[in-house]
Amino acid sequence: MALDDKDYVRYSRHIMLPEMGEQGQQRLSCASAAIIGLGGLGMLCAQYLAGAGIGSLLLIDGDKVESSNLPRQLLFDDKDIGHNKALVSQHKLQHRNPSCQVRGDDNYLGHDNAVNHLSQVDVVIDCSDNFMTRQLVNATCVALMRPNVVASVAHFSGQLLCIDLQKAPQAGCYHCLFPQSLKVSQGCDTQGVLGPMVGVMASMQTLLAMQILLQLDDVQQRRYDTLYRFNGLGLNQLSSRRKRDPQCAVCAPYVMEKIHG
């Protein structure tokens, strides 16, 4: 889709980036993303991407807005309480960004709809709030060979990683790092969380997603094999290189031929 005069003004701060330019903005305007979960992470990712001029967004969440969400989920207000998060987000973002095609699904992502939803987009952004859904998003993205940008947060801990088995089969998948049998103790419901903590993680997650959609240079060759762990008290971040678990049954059928030729 060609940019018109209004677009040049609206997106001028993008276009002046040498890494992006007019071509990058056009690329973004043709791109699509699915956001799983419209909580603290997802509602911010969605706003950034819609505002930035992405072509289409698919928002998936069966949850409803509650008053305990409002201190950190800034897309929502008191009038939204009791309404579905995906549909409220769709309505508000479509109104603010008419050129972005925003669709909402008020069902949770499940085995019945995952393949259908995630096969429609260029990149999947996992903003869910539970381990089971994260495993489902991973398995579906692995099977569909879709890049999956995963962020999570609880207390003052955040984790961020990007999985693309075509780009980095040796780094494996989410299940290689965090197998389904793992017991989870860190969630916002039980441990609490501050708004800016979620905001930091969602911002880095969206930045990663935009790097992928814009095909920006992967300067350090670490985009697809790094696990970032952010500590919101020390304001520091650790980077680790992910390695595929040779015993991982989730990605084995899809990476064997890539690694072993």
Partner: peptide, 18 residues
């Protein structure tokens, strides 16, 4: 507890089966 953690050694993840 083995079923609650992931391990990184020297900056590299050590997958559970290893």
């Amino acid at each position: 507890q083995l079923d609650r953690v992931a391990v990184v050694c020297g900056g590299d993840v050590v997958p559970k089966s290893m």
